[in-house]
């Protein structure tokens, strides 16, 4: 592989990695607070991808407007899912298992709904920009990829600030260590969980829009969530920063592997890598070892 192709792939990979990072954080933030693997995140991503398609084809051809609107709708869907599906389970004090089962059910309903409605159709987003790429010393940098990277970075930075500097953000972080015992800085549990799902929903909105823009929109787009989950595992479940690093790493490694050995072997290599990682360092690159309380 020549060095220019190498850099080309690296840039593309890191950009896509930015999207994986956003996905990993959306998945991870719910995991942190409620301690279950939230597969409904993939469902919200899929809904957002369709919404983004609809908006950009029928309402506005402005990239920023379409993205902002999709993100908002993603947040609203996240809240709706929490209210309808998870809140009743939490209020009844049921085991974590039931949260999880509800979450895969949501993912399933979403995928099958889109399959039933438009299963045979593939939707492609419009080109938002006239100039689609920049040429920098022999490298072709796709404008959408660059935007994805920058926006992902800004969003994750803003989220970090929110979690560290605001009262609600700190309440979410307090909830991560134990949602049921501390007073959560005077914020009630319903608000904290609702907010957590709104944040996850906003991130799912961005993810859905970007994935829809990069690939075509199909009912199976929610399964792309596997990348976010892999990033969350590599990063160490429960560590948002680890998820971000791992997401970018995963995007880069994936792109380079695809260029080097082809797209059919790449998932196999990545997957085997994860099994090995779990054997030698189960806590991921940034997580703490999991301890139990008696």
């Amino acid at each position: 592989m020549g060095s220019s192709i190498f850099f080309q792939q690296l840039i593309n990979g890191v950009s896509l990695g930015g999207v994986y990072a956003v996905m990993a954080v959306g998945f991870g933030i719910v995991f942190n607070v409620l301690k279950f693997s939230n597969f409904s995140h993939g469902g919200v991503v899929a809904i957002s991808a369709y919404v983004g398609y609809y908006l950009s084809r029928n309402v506005t051809d402005n990239f920023w407007l379409a993205l902002a609107a999709t993100t908002m709708i993603g947040g609203a869907v996240g809240l709706l899912v929490e209210r309808l599906v998870f809140r009743p389970v939490r209020r009844a004090g049921k085991p974590l298992t039931y949260f999880f089962v509800n979450s895969i059910t949501v993912a399933m309903v979403v995928q099958q709904f889109f399959s039933a409605m438009w299963g045979a159709h593939y939707f492609a987003y419009p080109d938002f920009f006239e100039r689609t790429a920049f040429h920098v010393s022999g490298l072709v940098i796709s404008r959408t990829y660059l935007l994805m990277l920058v926006i992902s970075a800004v969003v994750l930075l803003a989220l970090t600030l929110f979690l560290r500097a605001t009262k609600l953000g700190i309440a979410i972080r307090a909830a991560s260590s134990d949602i049921y015992t501390p007073p959560l800085m005077g914020v009630n549990t319903d608000v904290v969980t609702g907010l957590t799902f709104v944040i996850a929903g906003l991130l799912a909105g961005i993810t859905g829009f970007f994935l829809g823009m990069t690939y075509t929109v199909t009912p199976f787009i929610g399964s792309m969530m596997l990348r976010g989950i892999i990033a969350a595992i590599i990063g160490g479940m429960g560590s948002l920063a680890g998820g971000v690093i791992a997401g970018i790493l995963l995007g880069a490694v994936e792109a380079l592997l695809i260029a080097e050995v082809g797209s059919s072997v790449t998932p196999i290599i990545i997957y085997l890598g994860i099994v090995v990682l779990l054997l030698v360092r189960p806590q991921g690159i940034a997580g703490k070892p999991y301890t139990v309380k008696a």
């Binding site: 995991f31 279950f36 693997s37 999880f100 596997l226 989950i229 892999i230 969350a232 595992i233 479940m237 998932p267 196999i268 997957y271 085997l272 994860i274 099994v275 779990l278 189960p282």
Partner: peptide, 13 residues
Amino acid sequence: DYFLLVTFGFGEM
């Protein structure tokens, strides 16, 4: 959760 997530990946692999 690790079991769950890794089996999910296994299916794809």
